[in-house]
């Protein structure tokens, strides 16, 4: 194996070969019929050379996606705040209305209470008329 390119291999082990010369050596190694340690080692190197990433995405895409997600999230937050505020406002209005109705009810109840107390006074108003009736009967 090494006889064919002995000088080149010597150069290789010294780290003096160029990339082009190394290509020649590895090509010759591949054509070797026997599986020596060197050939096995370079098959391992070949396998590593063939390694490619499968799921790396261009950051631009993820960046755009993140931007869109951020805008969407901001929009949803604003919408949720606005909806929450509207609900709070409506709830406050309804509460105020209920309180007014309750207050009116109380006023009405108290007014009614006053009127019922005055009912006995109404009777007193007619006491004289009863006496009159008695007087009239007596005269007749």
């Amino acid at each position: 194996m090494e006889n064919k390119h002995k000088d080149l291999w010597e150069k290789y082990w010294k780290g003096e070969t160029s990339v082009a010369e190394e290509k020649i050596l590895f090509q010759a190694l591949e054509e070797e019929p026997e599986d020596g340690e060197l050939k096995t080692f370079y098959s391992g190197i070949q396998s590593l050379r063939a390694e490619r990433p499968k799921g790396i995405h261009l950051p631009l895409q993820s960046f755009l996606w993140q931007k869109m997600a951020a805008v969407m999230l901001a929009f949803l937050t604003v919408a949720a705040c606005w909806w929450g505020y509207r609900s709070y406002e409506q709830e406050q209005e309804a509460r105020a209305y209920r309180q007014v109705v309750e207050a009116m009810g109380k006023i009405q109840f108290n007014l009614k209470k006053g009127t019922s107390h005055l009912e006995s006074m109404e009777k007193i108003k007619y006491l004289n008329s009863a006496a009159n009736w008695y007087e009239n009967d007596k005269n007749n």
């Binding site: 390694e51 990433p53 499968k54 799921g55 790396i56 995405h57 261009l58 950051p59 631009l60 993820s62 960046f63």
Partner: peptide, 18 residues
């Protein structure tokens, strides 16, 4: 480890992009 290598490169690419 292929998965870890991929994650490391993805993070590096993102930093490069930024």
């Amino acid at each position: 480890d292929r998965d870890k290598a991929q994650d490391a490169v993805q993070d590096t690419m993102y930093k490069g992009f930024i």
